[in-house]
Amino acid sequence: MRAFLTDTDKLKGTLKTLEVTSDELRELIYEADDLVMDCRIRAEYPKSKGSFSCCHLSSRELFFRYQTGKKLINISKQFEQMQPTLKVYLEAAARFNSEGSRGEMRRSSQVFKQSEIVGLTEDAKRIKGWILPRNKELHYIGIVGMGGLGKTTIAQKIFNDKEVKARFQERIWVPVSENANVYEILKSILKQLRADDQATSDLPHKICQVLSDKTYLIVLDDVWNIKNGWWETISIGLPSTEEHSGCIIITSRIVDVVKDMGVMETRVHQPKLLDEEEGWSLLCKVAFKSKKQGSTNSNLEKIGKEIVTKCGGLPLAIKAIGGSLSSKNSSIPEWDRICKTFRAKIATKIIILLWLLCS
């Protein structure tokens, strides 16, 4: 649904009828995300308490599963009802992409828009303080937090910083994701080093040769686990000398993962949630062209800040709702409707989930 929404948002300028469909689809995504968060909280809570048994389910848990099943069926039915409308535009979307406009990559990249960054200055400053000094050994840093907190954006900001560019001779960005493929990661590193990546064996040794006399920064974005041994294989090719130090920045949702990869506890950074002003500024950047445009209407600003509060300071949530508001043409009744129907319990869930992940 998100992939289709990305395409429809690009086509809105030429196909106005897509606005209604994409807004309905966005609401359905919110509902699905809400349900997923419910399930994640339920799954994480027993783990945090050190007790879990799938053989002994309480009546409350059984009722929750029954209700979840009903909601899933309802979401599926709504999507099925939308499918005939969506299919009408699939051909148009394909034609749009074939004419030279490529869709966004599903995986992260080092590219970012500085104008869209809000509230991450102190995060970047702290991490830069760790990586700019020359270290005698390979230096590991972790950026950890729940999904949507801005971990990748912070890494992008650092990766593109002028001082960081001057500090390191080589900078490499590697999107890892849940199903890490060691061969693809090694090939990606070699390609960014402008080295021959056609070889099929001893790729770690080749990386070691290229980096042996250079300072380098490698960002491993969205690491979920190291269970299949991909990290052990890759780390062999990461040299460390006194004259040519290196730094590895790892973003992950799980603090134990970055620690297992060599990050000391004192070098784990956890981004904070946005405060009201930062959240309002971000909402304006997405819903309008600037904060100034949103501040010209005090009633709109009041509703917007209430929405930001309901988002719990989570950047991803603010961006998502901002995307929906962007099509409302600053209509106070429409903003008010979205504010009132926006699930207030999302903020509580975010706080609970953060507590569970950090405990």
Results as ranks from 00 to 15, higher is better:
322 G>F: 03
326 S>D: 02
193 L>M: 14
327 S>E: 01
38 D>N: 13
297 N>C: 10
200 T>S: 11
329 N>R: 15
144 V>Q: 05
55 C>F: 12
132 L>E: 09
279 G>H: 03
163 E>T: 12
296 T>Y: 12
192 Q>W: 03
192 Q>G: 05
119 G>D: 01
314 L>F: 00
215 T>G: 12
342 F>L: 10
332 I>Q: 15
181 N>H: 10
144 V>G: 05
47 K>I: 15
201 S>F: 03
55 C>D: 08
21 T>H: 09
304 G>S: 15
311 C>A: 05
197 D>K: 05
287 A>H: 00
186 L>I: 07
217 L>N: 03
39 C>T: 13
161 D>E: 06
235 S>L: 10
41 I>N: 02
128 K>T: 09
338 I>H: 04
72 L>W: 13
242 E>Q: 12
302 K>Q: 06
42 R>P: 04
117 I>N: 07
325 L>G: 03
341 T>D: 00
354 L>Q: 07
78 Q>D: 09
289 K>S: 13
20 V>P: 02
167 R>Q: 11
21 T>M: 09
310 K>D: 00
267 R>I: 09
137 E>G: 04
228 N>S: 10
124 A>M: 07
133 P>V: 00
190 L>R: 04
77 K>A: 12
11 L>Y: 08
113 K>I: 05
153 T>I: 05
177 S>D: 10
48 S>L: 11
270 Q>L: 11
255 V>L: 07
282 L>T: 06
180 A>C: 10
116 E>C: 03
39 C>L: 02
315 P>G: 00
122 E>N: 13
215 T>R: 15
231 W>S: 04
146 M>Q: 09
48 S>T: 14
208 C>P: 06
131 I>N: 02
145 G>L: 06
29 I>K: 00
341 T>F: 02
345 K>V: 12
190 L>K: 05
147 G>L: 01
13 G>F: 11
259 K>M: 07
78 Q>Y: 12
333 P>K: 08
275 D>A: 09
137 E>Y: 00
151 K>F: 01
155 A>S: 03
357 L>M: 04
261 M>S: 03
119 G>F: 07
224 W>M: 11
66 Y>F: 15
120 L>R: 15
281 S>Y: 07
5 L>M: 08
210 V>E: 14
110 Q>W: 13
195 A>D: 08
344 A>I: 13
341 T>I: 04
99 E>N: 14
347 A>H: 04
97 N>E: 09
200 T>F: 08
73 I>S: 15
113 K>F: 14
323 G>H: 02
338 I>R: 01
31 E>Y: 13
135 N>F: 14
313 G>T: 11
109 S>R: 03
18 L>I: 15
328 K>C: 03
205 H>F: 11
127 I>V: 05
212 S>W: 12
310 K>S: 01
318 I>T: 10
136 K>S: 13
90 L>A: 15
223 V>N: 01
285 K>W: 01
77 K>Y: 08
48 S>N: 15
114 Q>F: 01
202 D>V: 11
82 M>L: 15
295 S>C: 06
305 K>R: 10
15 L>A: 03
87 K>P: 11
335 W>G: 05
303 I>F: 10
197 D>P: 06
93 A>E: 05
92 A>E: 04
123 D>K: 00
263 V>P: 02
351 I>H: 07
